[in-house]
């Protein structure tokens, strides 16, 4: 059932990513925070992603202490929280988006909100809303017993991070427990556009392959179609966040649609 047993997987996220490799170079995964700039616009923007070439939607739940996020996402999630974001809005958004698109949705959330909501209850409500799983940036598999059990029971995908600094043993553990994909952190740092996507990402994905990964997506610092294409030379998916959030902030839903379509060009190129 894990990411290295793709033949037997029931994961819609892994299936969606795998499908892109027959039609193109790989998957584009797009991040937007729920509730930015308001709940309805964030729903419309996520649907615009799906309609403009994004293969998996990553919806972030705004949180007070987002230590993995850079300034663009920090500012957006602060706007959402100041406007009254509640955790339950995440499920509302997932439900509204899945009514209008088949593109799978994973939530990206820091761990404390899930713990406070109740891990089992969170899993059940996410399944009921039609969500596919969770990306947990500050939860390592070592601390995840409760979530591993809840995701096993519900079949939700669980995406943990793998880093250039992770030992081979920890990479094997990540591949073993991840379902959907492994989130390969491209560079040492936080979210935000960068000029160059680190060569560390290529090495990391190669190490993940050695550890058995069949579904490895690269995130952090990717903001152009060229970078997407470059990452898809070796990875199964490219994750874009801050560039989309900035497009939404600057140009609204039509702005984020244009940027998503431009980024998706990077998935069509083959070498």
């Amino acid at each position: 059932m894990s990411a290295h047993h793709s033949a037997t997987t029931a994961s819609p996220v892994e299936a969606a990513i795998a499908a892109t490799k027959t039609s193109g170079a790989g998957a584009l995964i797009g991040y937007l925070p729920v509730g930015f700039p308001d709940l309805q616009t964030s729903i419309d923007a996520a649907i615009a992603l799906a309609e403009n070439g994004v293969d998996v939607i990553e919806l972030g739940l705004p949180y007070s202490d987002p230590v993995m996020d850079g300034p663009v996402i920090q500012e957006a999630t602060e706007v959402a929280r100041a406007a009254g974001f509640r955790l339950r809005d995440g499920f509302t958004a997932v439900r509204a988006i899945t009514e209008r698109t088949d593109v799978p949705i994973v939530l990206m959330t820091y761990w404390n909100p899930v713990m406070q909501y109740g891990v089992e209850r969170f899993a059940d409500d996410l399944v009921a809303a039609g969500g596919a799983g969770l990306i947990t940036p500050d939860l390592i598999p070592d601390e995840a017993a409760e979530w591993l059990a809840a995701s096993e029971r519900t079949g939700l995908d669980r995406v943990f991070l793998a880093a250039p600094t992770s030992s081979d043993e920890r990479l094997r553990q990540a591949v073993e427990v991840c379902r959907g994909f492994v989130y390969a952190v491209s560079t040492m740092g936080i979210t935000g556009a960068r000029q160059d996507v680190d060569s560390a990402a290529r090495t990391l994905v190669a190490r993940l392959r050695d550890a058995g990964a069949t579904s490895a997506c690269v995130g952090l610092g990717i903001s152009t179609a060229e970078q997407v294409a470059e990452v898809l030379e070796y990875a199964d998916g490219a994750i874009v966040g801050s560039a989309l959030v900035k497009a939404l902030a600057d140009g609204g839903v039509s702005g984020v649609a244009r940027v998503a379509a431009a980024l998706a060009e990077g998935t069509r190129r083959t070498k």
Partner: peptide, 12 residues
């Protein structure tokens, strides 16, 4: 207690 931090910090 424990370690609820992003994976990139675990090695350090």
């Amino acid at each position: 207690g424990g370690r609820f931090v992003p994976e990139p910090l675990i090695a350090a």
